[in-house]
Nucleic acid binder design. Structure first.
Lengths: 157, 157
DNA sequence: TCAAATAGGACCTTTCAGGTCCCCTTTGAA
DNA sequence: TTCAAAGGGGACCTGAAAGGTCCTATTTGA
């Protein structure tokens, strides 16, 4: 199965938490230890996630005492693809995409080189319309995420 | 980046080769050693790929002397997603999809559980229209797989 | 001056994909 | 009848990458 790194998963959780706590652009900041507590993710891991998000410009870190993190954008304006890019790199299914040499056993005789492009594009396209807000919807009531009608259909299929 | 297993990649090459060699439903069979030679992929690896494809019913193995493999379907009738499923399992970005327990650090407090569904479905959807024939074009010179309207758009984008 | 908090690496451990090898079964042909 | 070619099914080993943890430096409010 495709694997998204766990850090990407944690990132969505943390971003959702930041939004819910009001750590939005111009708002309060939230500390890494606090977010660790709130999300149940180990503190060093949360710190690592936030560091990466900071380097990608998706959150803003405030140093010093009373420091913390806040979002740089509303989640609805943050495409999921940017988060994935920050943690997993460019969205592509194979290394064989743009003719990078030396990675493929069938280098010399491969008839498929470059042919995955349409697949990669289809996936990028599919992801382009999804924002973090769509995934990390802050619903106060947690419980079986009783799938919305749309989701139910998808699951059924 | 997303990673598709290399075996999946090899599988597409091998399937394309089978088609090109006439190892189609009702036709000749091709041996694993022969395919290894033709594709440049190591023989044990080709054998492994074919075994998996056979278990998935995507190729038919003929045992005994003069045995070999042939396709069970024309490549144009073989969705890429079936190949991916055979090698990489269900198409899903995270393990957290259907509430499998014990995999997630934030098990108890995760607010995102199940929320990846729309993402997964978007990807399944994107892949649903692509067949192996679209990827493993049988001949260097070949009439554009008229499937192209959609693909062309994606590529163009 | 101190304590709280981010910033940035370095490091270790574990997991798993990738690849190879071995042995069995089947079957056509000499 | 025998043999060799070929698929079938696992078992095994290895190397790389993900996942986590920890340490140290830097910043800054109280």
């Amino acid at each position: 199965m495709f694997r998204l790194s766990k850090l990407t998963d944690y990132a969505v959780v943390v971003l959702g938490r930041l939004a819910r706590e009001g750590a939005v652009p111009g708002g309060q900041v939230q500390t890494a230890p606090g977010l660790a507590l709130a999300t149940g993710i180990a503190e060093p891991t949360v710190a690592k996630v936030l560091k990466i998000l900071g380097q990608a410009g998706l959150v803003e870190g405030v140093r010093g005492a009373r420091g913390g993190y806040r979002l740089t954008r509303p989640l609805a304006a943050l495409p999921l693809s940017e988060v994935i890019f920050a943690f997993d790199g460019p969205i592509a299914l194979t290394a064989c995409v743009d003719g990078v040499a030396g990675l493929c056993e069938a280098e010399g005789v491969c008839q498929v080189r470059g042919r995955w492009d349409p697949v990669n594009d289809a996936i990028r396209n599919a992801l382009s319309g999804i924002t973090v807000a769509d995934i990390a919807a802050p619903h106060p009531v947690r419980q079986p995420v009783a799938a919305a009608p749309v989701l139910a259909q998808l699951v059924a299929e």
